[in-house]
Write a protein that binds this DNA or RNA. Structure first.
Length: 490
RNA sequence: CGGGGCGUAGCACAGCCUGGUAGUGCGCUCGGUUUGGGACCGAGAGGUCGGAGGUUCAAAUCCUCUCGCCCCGACCA
């Protein structure tokens, strides 16, 4: 059996699947389309949650929890929303099982049919706005700035671990505001939060933009998104933030008395990121040796491995290493000393590389005599020997350097794979190679659809920072005033 | 949901065509030797061959149905 992973260059999706499995992040479950997130994978998710949650709190949001089940009648109320999600809903029709009178096992009790079916939430706008009706009477009740951490179910035809699972974990923010401007500002603010999180924590450069009407969230007036480029040249939507207008307020009959004493519908936003970010994290940075984790999200930042023969040597190394461990911990760096005698050092090296631990320290007798320690960094796979005295400060700096380097590498990759294209021939050629394409578009969904049919590329977004620039649509030749971002996407 | 591939020990696979005692490597257990990049030797444990039905004296192998996984399309965060 080969101990290495499949190569990215040979079979990207097999590499991805194997990596997720072998690094102990997650596995497919007995339930179709659903995953088991294993402790190591969940530890990364927890770090993401913590960072995001702090950012949400810092922008004035509070957490709450709304029910898993959505009455069918709620889902129906906002028409666009309803038709957008109808195709992928899990439906609860009964509330009881009974033993099978004709044999073994259990059957659904036909007597226990629900009067109204319950939908397992694909998202929570409807339950939440139904609740907000009772919470909002006056302009003094606004804004409402609530987030919830939850699971949702979207019955996907084709699933991929982390990237598209039938059940996934996410956070969904749902806010209500007195004015249109304030709601738009909120949607944009949260997009910025996502972008900052992606770049500072995940070391993932993203492009902020708005979706075209066809790619818009069902029920939204505007969908903002952050788009990232994966190593195989495909785009991944890493987060979305929606300006929902007054659609849900109207559908759920939520009104407030404004300062002038007139009834008004409040303005809404919703925004979310999911465990899909795990997929983004993996696909953006990892290599053929395994995961490459940005230090700020790595459950374990430093692994220390002793290289020894016999207990006596191990004891000496352990003694030498102990103060280093203590000092690293004191600085808030997560560190593990792997003195497990059941595995050899070479095995451990490979294992922690597979798991993406940013820094490895190794100490053997040679180091002990010279008062040195070997430092290996995961992002570059380079090693050097350094004096023990300064190792803690070095590690501290190195963690930051790795975080930055991973980001720079991803940014460089994106820049090298972003193409400004003006002709259809070039579009066809570049889209085959993968990457982002910046091209003019005439603004019609007809053209968007044609391009998708012919190339499988979609408009990922209209970048927020797109310059006004006269040009002609790459497909139809009609006039256009800015470039939009095309790519094949996950 | 369509097209293709695959389900045999924890993992990777052979055996199936041509039915006749279920195998190999890795992993696991025990003992020993080892230890600066996935150690070696020896001895072991582990499988209702995805499930159900059928054909047959006999089914991992042939037939039917079913469930699941992977890849490619249509749909999506």
């Amino acid at each position: 059996m080969s101990k290495g992973l499949p190569k990215r260059s040979e079979n990207y999706s097999e590499w991805y699947n194997e990596l997720v499995r072998r690094a102990g992040l997650a596995e497919n479950s007995a339930v179709r389309g659903c995953m088991v997130i294993k402790p190591y994978g969940y530890a990364i998710w927890e770090k993401m949650q913590r960072a995001l949650d702090d950012m949400f709190k810092a922008t004035g949001h509070v957490n709450a929890y709304f029910p898993l089940f959505v009455p069918k009648s709620f889902l129906e109320k906002e028409e666009e929303h309803a038709s957008g999600f109808a195709k992928e809903c899990a439906v609860v029709t009964h509330y009881r099982l009974k033993t099978n009178p004709n044999g073994k096992g259990l059957i659904v009790d036909p007597e226990a049919k629900l009067e109204e079916e319950l939908i397992v939430r694909p998202t929570s706008e409807t339950v939440i706005w139904n609740t907000y009706r009772n919470w909002i009477q006056s302009w003094r009740d606004l804004p409402i700035l609530i987030n919830q951490w939850a699971n949702v179910v979207r019955w996907e035809m084709r699933t991929r671990i982390f990237l598209r699972t039938a059940e996934f974990l996410w956070q969904e923010g749902h806010t209500a505001h007195a004015t249109r401007e304030e709601a738009i500002e909120e949607a944009e603010r949260m997009l910025d939060v996502y972008a900052e999180f992606a770049e500072k924590w995940m070391a993932l450069p993203v492009i902020k933009g708005v979706k075209t009407p066809t790619e818009r969230f069902a029920g939204a007036e505007e969908t903002y998104c952050i788009e990232a480029l994966m190593q195989d040249g495909k785009a991944l939507q890493a987060g979305t933030s929606h300006f929902l207008g007054q659609n849900f307020a109207k559908s759920f009959d939520v009104q407030f008395m404004n300062k002038e004493g007139k009834l008004e519908y409040p303005w809404a936003t919703s925004w979310g990121v999911s465990t899909r970010l795990m997929g983004a994290l993996i696909m953006a940075h990892s290599d053929d040796q395994g995961l490459v984790l940005p230090p700020r999200l790595a459950p374990l930042q430093v692994i220390i491995i002793p290289i020894y023969k016999g207990e006596e040597e191990l004891a000496k190394i352990s003694e030498k290493v102990e103060p280093i461990i203590q000092e690293l911990k004191r600085k808030g760096i997560s560190v593990k000393y792997d003195d497990d005698d059941k595995q050899r050092s070479g095995w451990k090296f490979a294992e922690y590389e597979l798991r993406g631990v940013p820094i490895r320290l190794a100490m053997g007798m040679r180091d002990l005599q010279q008062n040195t320690i070997e430092v290996a960094r995961r992002d570059t796979l380079t090693k050097e020997t350094r004096p023990v005295e300064t190792i803690v400060e070095h590690v501290e700096k190195l963690l930051e350097e790795i975080q930055e380097n991973i980001y720079r590498k991803a940014l460089k990759f994106r820049e090298e794979n972003t193409f400004v294209v003006d002709t259809w021939e070039e579009f066809l050629e570049k889209i085959e190679r993968g990457g982002f394409i910046l091209a003019h578009w005439d603004g019609t969904s007809e053209t968007e659809e044609k391009i998708k049919e012919e190339t499988k590329a979609t408009i990922r977004c209209i970048p927020l920072d797109a310059k006004e620039e006269a040009g002609r649509c790459v497909y139809s030749g009609k006039p256009s005033n800015k470039r939009v971002l095309f790519a094949r996407a996950y």
